[in-house]
């Protein structure tokens, strides 16, 4: 139990998807104009990561990794399908995203229209694929660990985008030089936030 908690906290702060790995930047920068939409997108990312990482874990454990097909027939011990992992992970992610898109469109048209092009772009949000690939690389030993890693990474991303959105809402009242307004200053603030988050790198859990 304690280990699950460790993985969860670690993936929020120490291994933060945005500030430690700089993944998922495109949607992070483009959708962080207001706190409301950021919360929406952040929740969508938590949801998608929380589903895709465990699903991809099962996929990897029972189909892809070398010798994974033994449960079908001991003869398959030599089969290694890991060359398919990229495309299968992506396919799972894309179908989940499409699912989320349909659900959001049905239940919250306002959120749907404000997320616009960025909902499909969650599919290529590198944070999502990164989550699955990190899971594969770090060899989590149970479904629970993979799930807590997926959720933790999602929460970390959520925190990051809500944080920058709050800063952007406040910065509207500041006298930012014209050409820097909007995107420019957001890039620079993100850089500074990233430098601040580097201090978490030293923590060992």
């Amino acid at each position: 139990m304690q280990e699950l908690f460790n993985i969860f906290v670690k993936s929020i702060f120490v291994d933060n998807m945005v500030f430690a790995y700089f993944l998922g930047m495109c949607s992070y920068l483009a959708v962080s104009k207001t706190v409301n939409t950021s919360v929406g997108l952040g929740l969508a990312v938590i949801f998608v990561l929380g589903i895709t990482v465990p699903v991809d874990y099962l996929l990897n454990d029972y189909i892809l990794k070398p010798g994974a097909l033994v449960w079908l027939d001991p003869e398959f011990a030599d089969v290694d399908l890991s060359f398919l992992s990229f495309i299968l992970f992506i396919a799972i992610i894309a179908s989940m995203v499409q699912l989320v898109e349909m659900v959001v469109e049905k239940f919250s048209p306002a959120l749907y229209s404000s997320l616009g092009i960025f909902l499909p772009l969650i599919a290529v949000n590198c944070a999502i694929l990164g989550g699955s690939l990190f899971m594969q690389e770090r060899e989590y030993q149970s479904l629970a660990q993979a799930t807590s890693f997926g959720l933790g990474s999602g929460v970390g991303w959520f925190l990051a985008i809500v944080g920058i959105a709050a800063i952007r809402e406040k910065i509207r009242y500041s006298n930012v030089p014209g050409p820097l307004r909007g995107l420019g200053i957001t890039f620079i603030i993100t850089g500074l936030m990233g430098i601040a988050f580097m201090s978490f790198l030293g923590i060992k859990l």
């Binding site: 700089f22 030089p177 050409p179 995107l183 420019g184 890039f187 620079i188 850089g191 500074l192």
Partner: peptide, 9 residues
């Protein structure tokens, strides 16, 4: 990130 910010500027 900061350099891209400056390029945008």
């Amino acid at each position: 990130l900061i350099i891209v910010g400056i390029i945008i500027w």
